Simulated scan of single mutants.
Amino acid sequence: MDVFAKYVSGIDNPDHRLRMEEILSWTAGQFPILKPQIKWNTPMFTDHGTFIIGFAAAKHHVSVSPEEAGIAHFADDIARAGYSATSRLFRIQWTDPVQYDLLESMIQYNIKEKADCSGFWRK
């Protein structure tokens, strides 16, 4: 997880920093086949060179990006979890619990759906 150390250390609020560390560590632990990377100043995980999921710290939340297809596929689950969303990301407020089962489903979905993907993003 050294790849994320500089990013995480730049999060001023210690509670937010700890939450981000927990999410990134959980993802790496649950999915050791994924490669942790920083691209566009965003922590993300890739598989065979293709984007799987990204996380970013914001003032009031963690932004989670599973690509538009992931947001669309899990729109009802995101709403049930109480997270707000756009077409490209959803937000976990710093004070909200992380629904790790939802993250796990999204990551598994992207790994499966992008198994034959040769580019970084879906086309």
Rank of each mutant, 00 (worst) to 15 (best):
S87A: 15
T95F: 13
N41C: 13
A58G: 11
T27H: 03
L34K: 02
G119M: 00
T50R: 08
I107Y: 09
D2H: 07
S84M: 10
A79T: 00
M1Q: 06
I92S: 06
I33E: 14
T95E: 14
E21A: 00
S25W: 09
D116F: 15
S25M: 07
I107A: 10
H73Q: 10
A28T: 12
D12Y: 09
H16Q: 15
A5R: 15
I52T: 01
P43Y: 03
V64A: 06
F31G: 04
T46I: 11
F31W: 04
F55W: 11
H60L: 14
H48Y: 05
V3F: 03
I33G: 11
L24W: 13
L103K: 03
H48S: 02
S84V: 12
M1T: 07
F45P: 07
G82P: 09
C117H: 15
N41Y: 10
E21W: 08
H73C: 06
A72H: 12
P14W: 12
D96I: 09
P66C: 00
R80F: 00
F31S: 02
D12C: 02
S63N: 03
I111P: 07
N41K: 15
S65I: 06
D76Q: 08
D47R: 04
S65V: 10
T95C: 10
F74L: 10
D47E: 13
F74D: 13
D47M: 09
C117I: 14
D116R: 08
Y7R: 04
E104Y: 10
S9T: 10
E104K: 11
A56Q: 00
D15F: 05
R19W: 01
R17Y: 09
K6F: 04
S63G: 04
I23T: 03
M44R: 13
D96H: 13
Y7C: 06
H61K: 11
G82R: 02
M106F: 07
A85Y: 07
V64I: 12
R88Y: 05
T27R: 08
I111R: 15
I111S: 06
I23S: 12
V98F: 09
A28H: 07
V8T: 03
F45E: 11
Q108I: 04
A115L: 01
A5D: 11
H16T: 04
L102P: 05
T46V: 03
A115Y: 12
M1D: 08
K59S: 05
Q108T: 04
A69H: 00
A81K: 05
H60G: 15
G49L: 06
R80I: 05
H48Q: 05
Q99G: 13
F51V: 00
Y109T: 08
K59M: 10
K35F: 11
P14V: 03
L34P: 07
H48L: 09
D101Y: 10
G70I: 07
G82T: 07
L89S: 15
V8A: 09
A81H: 03
I52R: 03
P97E: 01
P97H: 13
T42V: 14
H73A: 14
P97R: 10
K112E: 15
T27V: 05
R91K: 03
S63E: 00
I111W: 02
M44G: 14
T86L: 06
I111F: 03
G70K: 08
A79F: 02
T42K: 00
T86K: 09
F31P: 02
S63A: 08
T42F: 05
D2F: 12
K112D: 14
H60F: 14
A58L: 08
S84P: 05
